[in-house]
Design a protein around this nucleic acid. Structure first.
Length: 224
DNA sequence: GCGACAG
DNA sequence: ATCTTGTCGC
């Protein structure tokens, strides 16, 4: 479990420096064992943003049934800055992960993986810190360009930044806005797309994300 | 200088 | 992210 350790109580400027020092550690090819349990990770806010609530939902990769979950709250101490999302949300996510009783084999995060200006979006950063394979599943684009995506479910178009392919714009359901899938850590793009589709049933978002989102933004009673 | 800008 | 009801369409 090759973790990485660095401070979280930093300034936006220092955060950028940390990203530059970690980008080279991201592994863009498959390096994962059997994927039996997949986890959805998401964050919500309470008290007008003063409290960050992170949630993790572990699902059986085959049945997509919830097998474990955890929630954690902590005061918000980093602002929302495009490109620095991980510094705002990861601290609370680490608390939630520590509360799990069942370890997941793969992480699906809300937000980008390497489809990021410095190739270290929240999914990549989290995967690196916890030492687990991860995938970035964003609902909207942070950077990169792409052509139109065929309407059929499963169709996708590469997301590019110059000559580099930084992700895939994937249609998880016909007729709705596509998802931005990118390598997080220890997984190749093809496998990432495959895993996202495998976790998606009849909705636009994969079940992992739907579970994590309802746990992170649902009634305050959830998990309290 | 003028946009763009994950959650 | 969050504030918020109804409504158009398959």
């Amino acid at each position: 479990m090759s973790n990485v350790d660095h401070p979280w109580n930093v300034t936006p400027r220092q955060a950028v420096e940390i990203q530059q020092s970690l980008r080279g550690l991201i592994e863009r090819e498959d390096r994962l064992g059997p994927v039996r349990r997949i986890a959805g990770v998401d964050v919500g806010f309470e008290d007008e943003g003063r409290t960050t609530r992170a949630a993790v939902a572990v699902l059986d990769a085959r049945s997509l049934e919830l097998v474990d979950c955890a929630i954690a709250r902590r005061p918000t101490r980093f602002p929302y800055v495009p490109g620095l999302l991980s510094f705002r949300e990861i601290p609370a996510i680490l608390d939630a992960l520590a509360r799990l009783r069942t370890a997941p084999d793969l992480l699906l995060c809300d937000g980008q993986g390497i489809a990021h200006p410095r190739r270290l979006g929240i999914a990549s950063h989290l995967g690196l810190v916890v030492g687990l394979p991860s995938i970035g599943v964003g609902k909207t684009r942070l950077c990169g360009t792409h052509g139109r995506v065929p309407e059929r479910k499963g169709a996708w178009t590469p997301l590019r930044d110059g000559e580099e392919i930084i992700g895939a714009v994937l249609r998880t359901r016909a007729g709705v806005k596509p998802l931005y899938v990118s390598i997080g850590h220890r997984i190749g793009l093809d496998t990432a797309i495959e895993q996202v589709l495998r976790a998606t049933t009849r909705y636009r978002l994969p079940e992992t994300t739907r579970w994590a989102h309802r746990l992170a933004s649902g009634p305050a009673a959830a998990g309290a």
